Structure formats: structure tokens, C-alpha cells
Computed example of a mutant assay.
Amino acid sequence: MIDAHVHFWNFDPVRDSWITDEMNAIQKDFSPKNLIRTYNDLQISGCVAVQANQSEEENEFLLTLAEQNEMIKGIVGWIDLKNPNLQGRLNYWNNFKKIKGFRHVLQAETAEFILDQDFIAGVKQLKDFGYTYDLLCYHNQLDSIIKMVDQIPDQPLVLDHCGKPDVKSQDLKSWTANIKILAQNPNVLCKVSGLLAEADWKNWKEIEIFNCFDVIFENFGCERIMYGSDWPVMLISRPYQDWFNLVWKYAERFSETERKLIFGDNAKTFYKL
């Protein structure tokens, strides 16, 4: 099994200011050694490490961790997609085979940024190097994401955290409508990850998460969904095992072949692990 979405960091209160005081459970360092026992217990063989800091130094940091820790099977790094010398930077990072794709924190950006033609042109260049692109956005940005994706129909894309639906309020109507549209592009996959951060951290109910899963599985199907934990961010709500068990419980309705796709094979194929 593969965990398609984890983060590692040496906590810096200035750089990591998005980790607020109410998230104090994760205001500390997290490294692969913190995951080894959990992965062994659950028979998870590796992970994809995803950028948490928007700098090329983040790529170096994750590559160093990957050299030291066999569990890191691939890296989703960061690169300035609007850099006039983007091709040169992509050529450079292409020397490091653990880097499988890139991500920008679009949830912090405006619709104008998402639909900026220089930015979209940058995403288009990724395909030439065999790179994937992770889409990170809130549910109320999905309309812009759809317009962006329409301009890059052949780029391998994955939607992080189910597009961050409003799990807490359960107001899922517009999110559902947009997921249906986005999923019509066969090159877009989806990670079932990150939903605990969008829920009432301490008081969410299983049905609230499963309502979101229903929409994702109906539209993407088991062949375009990959399991991810969003560890350590999800620790603001529950231990790792609780999230894994929740996804596994939902997936019990599927065949063994379909579960293998969700819990590993789709990530291996998408990220070329």
C-alpha cells in the first residue's frame, strides 16, 4: 500500500505561519521516522512526500529525506511555474528521479492567479518532462480550477483532498456539481485525503465524511482515486490509524482489485513510483 500524500517539515513559526496556535498539535518537527511504526502496523510500504513550503529549497529538503528513508517513493515538489526560465529549472530537477511532479498552493491564490495565462503555460510545460501536477484548492475555487483544467486537457492532474469540501457545514451542493464537471476530464484523479481538516476537528461524524466519499467515488470511480493521509496535518483531529481505518471501512464495499487500486496501484501508476 502507498500513502499518496504526506508532509515532512522542520517547524519554523515564521515560514510555517499557516500552522496556527489552534493547530498546536503539529507545531513541531515531523520526519519519516515518526511514521515507520504506523506504516509497519498497517502494512503501508511507502509514501509520496508533498511540498509544504513554496521554494526550491523544499525540493532539496525532500530529496535529502528520500535519500535517507526508503519509505519515500516519490516527491511532489515546488517550482515557480511563471518563471521565464521554467524550462531550465525543469531540466535541472529532471536529474532527480524521485521528483515525480509539482504543486503550488492554489488555495491561497485568487481566481486571477489560477487563470493567469503565464501560470497555465507553466503547467503545460510539465507534460514535456513527464511530470504530474497536484491541484490544491478550496471547494469555492473549483469553478476556476475547472476553467484552468479545460486549457490543459492532456496534463496528468490529481485533485488533493477531494477539493476541500465544507465537511463541517455539509453544504455540499455546489461542490458536488463542480466535482461532477471536473471528473469528466479523464486525466484528473482525486486523492481521498485531508477531509478531517475541513470537518469539526473533534466532533465530526463518520456520515459527514462518507457523504463526501459518495460523491468522489461516484464520479471518479475506483480507477482514478488514491488513498492519502495528509499526515501530519490530520493529527489536529485524530491519530493516523483512525483516518486509515475510516477510508478502509468505506472501501470494504469494493472488490479486492478495486481496493488495490485505491490503496496503492493508482498512486504507483500516476506518479510512476
Rank of each mutant, 00 (worst) to 15 (best):
M1A: 12
I2T: 03
H5Q: 06
H7Q: 07
H7R: 04
F8G: 02
N10Q: 14
D12P: 04
R15A: 09
D16S: 12
D16K: 10
S17P: 08
S17T: 09
I19D: 10
T20E: 15
M23E: 13
M23T: 09
A25C: 13
A25T: 14
I26A: 05
D29G: 03
T38P: 13
Y39D: 05
N40D: 11
N40V: 04
N40G: 07
D41E: 15
Q43W: 06
Q43P: 12
C47E: 06
C47K: 00
S55R: 01
N59C: 01
F61L: 06
L63T: 03
L65C: 06
I72S: 00
K73A: 05
G74V: 00
G74C: 04
W78F: 00
I79E: 00
N83T: 07
L86F: 11
Y92H: 15
N94M: 09
N95R: 14
K98I: 04
K100C: 04
L115W: 00
D116M: 06
D116P: 06
F119R: 04
I120H: 01
I120L: 05
Q125V: 07
Y131H: 07
T132Y: 05
Y133F: 02
Y138W: 09
Y138Q: 10
Y138L: 10
N140K: 12
Q141Y: 06
V149R: 02
I152L: 10
D154K: 12
Q155E: 05
L159H: 11
D160Q: 03
H161L: 03
H161P: 01
K164Y: 10
P165M: 03
D166I: 06
V167R: 07
K168M: 14
L172K: 02
A177D: 15
A183M: 06
A199H: 03
D200P: 13
W201Q: 06
K202F: 12
N203Q: 11
W204R: 08
N211R: 15
N211C: 11
C212W: 03
V215W: 06
I216H: 10
G221L: 01
C222E: 11
R224C: 08
R224A: 00
Y227L: 07
P232K: 03
V233W: 02
R238P: 05
Y240C: 02
Y240R: 09
Y240K: 05
Y240M: 05
A251F: 09
R253F: 08
E256M: 15
G264L: 04
T269N: 15
L273V: 14
